[in-house]
Design a binder for these strands. Sequence first.
DNA 1: ATTATCTATAGATCTATAGATAATGC
DNA 2: ATTATCTATAGATCTATAGATAATGC
Lengths: 230, 230
Amino acid sequence: MTTAGRPRLTTKKRQGETAREEILDAAAELFTTRGYTNTSTRMIAEAVGMRQASLYHHFANKDELLDSLLSGTVDEPLAVAQALRDSDARPEVKMYALALFDADQLGRSRWNLGALYLLPELRDDRFETFRGHRYALMDLYREIASSMLADKRLTAMPGAEDLPFRLVETVVNRRADIEAGHSAPHGDHARVIAESAVRVLGWSGELESVHARAVELVDEHARDGRILAR
Amino acid sequence: MTTAGRPRLTTKKRQGETAREEILDAAAELFTTRGYTNTSTRMIAEAVGMRQASLYHHFANKDELLDSLLSGTVDEPLAVAQALRDSDARPEVKMYALALFDADQLGRSRWNLGALYLLPELRDDRFETFRGHRYALMDLYREIASSMLADKRLTAMPGAEDLPFRLVETVVNRRADIEAGHSAPHGDHARVIAESAVRVLGWSGELESVHARAVELVDEHARDGRILAR
DNA sequence: ATTATCTATAGATCTATAGATAATGC
DNA sequence: ATTATCTATAGATCTATAGATAATGC
């Protein structure tokens, strides 16, 4: 059983249900291994098993490819962050849960797309969609961090509200160095990050029960988030 | 008073004592604002006020430009880290001092070159020099972190030795977001990072005296380092 | 009729080299 | 003689569009 349209010359080379997904998968691999500007549309097409011009049936241009990929990495954590903010959990549990979910996701995704977050090219208006979503996520991290710091028993330096988000994004750097063979992987890195995220805000209480409660919350909201995203 | 060689058509546009420095300064600006592959040698030459082909009198190719710039960002912290390791200060002071110096430098350098550390292009052998230096710095962070953790009163999670280096590199991300207008600058961010670097390793003692002692050490060794670098 | 592919190509780059030229330095 | 620039260009790209073709769907 085939589908409409002229058949490809090559047999399928990529995972993905639709042509769009095959293309995104190939582009993600090439962008993360060779760089964005350094990857030509011809290389992407070749990795998919189609002709260069055929890509343009699915994407208006190369930028749209990158914008789709990057937006895809932020949408799920963003949904989870909103759900967590609106939940009635304790602030340190929310913070821990968000960091845990996000760090885990950044560490396990098929390609390390986070390594492209700092590309100067992204400043361009064409990537407005992605930037907007990432900044929304950043603001939610800040909001949850601030709600923790409202508890005056926590003594964090002014400026510390920024750190949890930054700490989570270090998963990307670490992963890049692991892939380059210069850091060792470690079973539960997301947990290290989540613990640090609350510690840098001055939390000095125990972490066992925070962890347990956060895992419950994440399971719950990640499910909702995933339903939203599909 | 002029120098040897045919004169340029344009008058000087760039800061720098030598043509080499002028070129590096222009390249740094363009690489950090437009991206590496997306910046042509023609644009660099234009920003310097010379013809495209003239660049090749000073650099063998475009990669050498990037390698020089990136190596330049690591050499000084590397010298400081070695001096600190070999000093007889207490481990938490060494860690704090290194993070303080490095974070400060990353935050104040003329261009945010650290934003290019994750470029996939850097995996190539051509950038071996830079990669080697950055990994040497990373290993020194780990070594100093481990010497702190040798004190059994500190209770950090396994895997935490990696965090100080990662935390310091977040200065780069933060600075990129500030330049994009989406984070507010903050007077003493390097200090926030240094404090966090020892906190994530489980240090729960006071920080005033650690800070004071670290500042002394940095002043001392940064001076030596700078002499080495020039 | 609609869809997804194909072939062909215009037009715009871009890097690096060859060789000429205009200064200073000896 | 040496140095730092210049002009000119070869050869290799690269993105996006125009228009043809080969399927399915109705």
